[in-house]
Simulated assay, not measured.
Amino acid sequence: MESSSGANEKNLCCLCCKSGPISSRFQIDRRGYVPGESIPIKAEVTNHSNRKKMTRSYASRLEISHGEILPGDSDVWNGDLLRVPPVPPSELQGCRIIEINYFVQFCVSPAGPAFKLEIPLGVTIGSIPLRATLQQYGFAPPSQGLGHPERYQEGAHATAPPEEIMPPPSYAESVFGTVNIKDDADTDFTKGDMNYAPVYTYYNWEQRTQTSAPM
């Protein structure tokens, strides 16, 4: 539930000429999300250089962007939503050779030859929503809590979670798409579909809200 923020500044140079700086501050409201949630992007960019700028924020293969920032102007991102796509959860417990880490990166792209200004913020992608997310979409009353992912805590006793408290997820094809799983031992006589796309936990909150709405 902790928020995360970062800042960066860069001076632009072109041959022997040095332009004014571009500066940016970037913040997200928390560090933990599940696929299907949207990350509110809050940021501010100030352009003290003599070049136009374009800003964008992206996670995995998805991105959102704003238009140009003229010299001397600034731009504010006040909660633009970046949807978390279907991806495998962070880390990979039980595996010593693969580690999965995710970042949301805010990027300012100067016009002309120059390096981008980038601010990456680490996030954890899980498969079970935080209690605050359940409350936001009406699945958990504020006075009740969610303990272990498979148990619902009520006072000193743990019981199975009511259906309206812990909604079952759906599953969606990985944002990374289909891969060919043919290996070196396979031949032209190997039969079957060699294209495979894994699926991961995905919460379609808007659809659930519409489904649960009273008739």
Results as ranks from 00 to 15, higher is better:
P168Q: 09
P110C: 10
E164G: 01
E37T: 02
C95Y: 06
D75C: 03
Q105C: 15
S90Y: 12
A59F: 03
L62M: 07
A132D: 13
P71M: 06
M166Q: 11
P214S: 08
Q135A: 13
T187Q: 13
L146Y: 06
G72P: 06
G177D: 10
S212I: 02
G145C: 05
Q153I: 13
R61Q: 03
A158F: 11
N8I: 06
E118M: 14
A111N: 02
I128P: 00
F115W: 04
M166P: 02
R31V: 12
Q93C: 07
M54D: 07
D29T: 10
A160Y: 14
N180Y: 11
T124C: 08
M54F: 10
D75R: 02
D183S: 11
P113I: 10
D184H: 05
A172F: 02
D184Y: 13
H148Y: 06
I22S: 02
P214W: 05
I39E: 08
V123R: 02
A132M: 12
Y58K: 04
R83Y: 01
L70R: 03
Y171G: 09
R83W: 01
V175S: 02
E44P: 00
Q144A: 12
D186E: 10
E163T: 15
A172K: 07
L92G: 04
I64Q: 03
K182R: 14
I22R: 03
R25W: 01
E37L: 01
Y33R: 05
A160P: 04
K53P: 01
M215G: 07
S4I: 12
N101D: 11
M54W: 07
K116E: 15
I181C: 10
K10R: 13
G155K: 09
K182C: 12
Q207W: 00
A197C: 15
I181P: 01
M166E: 13
Y58D: 04
Q207L: 07
R151C: 12
P141T: 07
V76T: 15
E68Q: 03
E2Q: 15
I64A: 06
G177E: 09
Q144F: 11
D186C: 11
L81H: 09
F189A: 13
T209E: 05
P35R: 03
I128T: 11
Q210E: 14
P21Q: 00
S38P: 02
P86S: 00
G72I: 04
V87Y: 07
G112T: 08
S5M: 11
N47G: 12
V76N: 06
V76D: 05
H66V: 06
K42R: 15
P129S: 08
I39D: 06
I39Y: 08
A111K: 00
R25D: 02
L81G: 07
V87W: 05
Q27E: 12
I100K: 05
L117V: 03
G79P: 08
M215P: 14
S174Y: 03
P129M: 09
E150R: 06
P169K: 05
P71H: 06
